[in-house]
Simulated assay, not measured.
Amino acid sequence: MAEKTNNTGEMNNEAVDEVVEEVFDEAESVDEETVEAAEQQNEEGSSLASELEAKLEESENRYFRLRADFENFRRRVNLDKESSEKYRAQSLISDLLPAIDNFERAMQMAPENEQTKSLLQGMDMVYRSLIEALKKEGVEPIEAVGTEFDPHLHQAVMQVEDPGHESNVVVEEFQKGYKLKDRVIRPSMVKVNQ
């Protein structure tokens, strides 16, 4: 590029036009290369962007599933903890029930003399203390005689035809049943009318 200057040292119009034309030519070639590179990068970028979006969505889904699983786990642990706390005495109560049955059978004996009578009074006091302690833990006897037979609460060991009672009603109780709060520890062993 030849510089053409006038007397004042400034470029003339022809020289400016030539320089501008050369700059434009160079800019065009650079723009074409840039556009091609940008298009290629855009294509790669859009596939990269869609790939990244897919990975992000997958990660978010995995995160939400893990969070839900953790919440479910925490809820189950809390329910198990509440249940174990609520029924913590179940094993001990199950072990005490045969002793209570023996107390009840012993107290049904008729006292023959004064010693037997005082012995039965002492047994009655111990029996009442045990029953009171069980009540504090939430144990209650299952009502059986005169109620409708419920297989969740009663265990039928005999059936009888008694016209004096309605059908499917418990007529006699052989062994008392107990519940701990809302859970049956031992069902009542009963005789049911057909």
Rank of each mutant, 00 (worst) to 15 (best):
R67G: 06
D69K: 13
D69M: 08
F70M: 04
E71N: 09
N72Y: 01
N72H: 12
R74E: 12
R74Q: 10
R75K: 11
R75C: 07
R75F: 04
R76L: 12
V77K: 14
V77W: 03
V77E: 11
N78P: 04
N78E: 14
N78G: 09
L79V: 14
L79I: 15
D80N: 11
D80T: 08
D80E: 08
D80K: 09
K81T: 15
S83A: 14
E85C: 05
E85L: 08
Y87F: 15
Y87M: 02
Y87K: 05
R88N: 08
A89W: 14
Q90G: 14
S91N: 11
S94W: 03
S94V: 04
D95K: 11
D95S: 07
L96W: 12
L97G: 08
L97A: 09
P98M: 04
A99I: 11
I100N: 01
N102S: 15
N102Y: 10
N102G: 12
F103P: 02
E104Q: 14
R105P: 07
M107G: 08
M107I: 13
M107V: 06
Q108D: 09
P111N: 14
P111C: 07
P111S: 15
N113E: 03
E114G: 04
Q115V: 10
T116W: 01
K117C: 08
K117H: 13
S118K: 14
L120I: 07
L120P: 06
L120N: 02
L120G: 01
Q121W: 01
Q121L: 14
G122S: 11
G122V: 04
M123L: 13
M125E: 12
V126S: 15
V126C: 08
V126Q: 10
Y127V: 03
R128Y: 11
R128P: 02
L130W: 05
I131V: 10
E132P: 04
E132R: 09
A133V: 05
K135D: 06
K136W: 09
K136Y: 08
G138C: 07
G138N: 10
V139C: 13
P141K: 12
I142P: 10
I142N: 02
I142T: 02
I142F: 11
E143G: 12
A144T: 03
A144I: 01
V145G: 15
V145I: 13
V145S: 05
V145R: 12
V145C: 01
T147I: 02
E148H: 05
F149K: 00
D150G: 09
P151N: 07
H152W: 06
L153Y: 13
H154Y: 01
Q155K: 15
A156N: 09
A156I: 10
V157E: 15
V157L: 12
V157N: 00
Q159K: 11
Q159P: 00
E161H: 11
D162E: 10
G164I: 12
H165T: 01
S167P: 04
S167H: 08
S167Q: 06
V170P: 00
V171D: 06
E173I: 07
E173F: 06
E173M: 06
F174S: 00
F174I: 01
Q175W: 02
G177K: 08
G177S: 02
G177M: 04
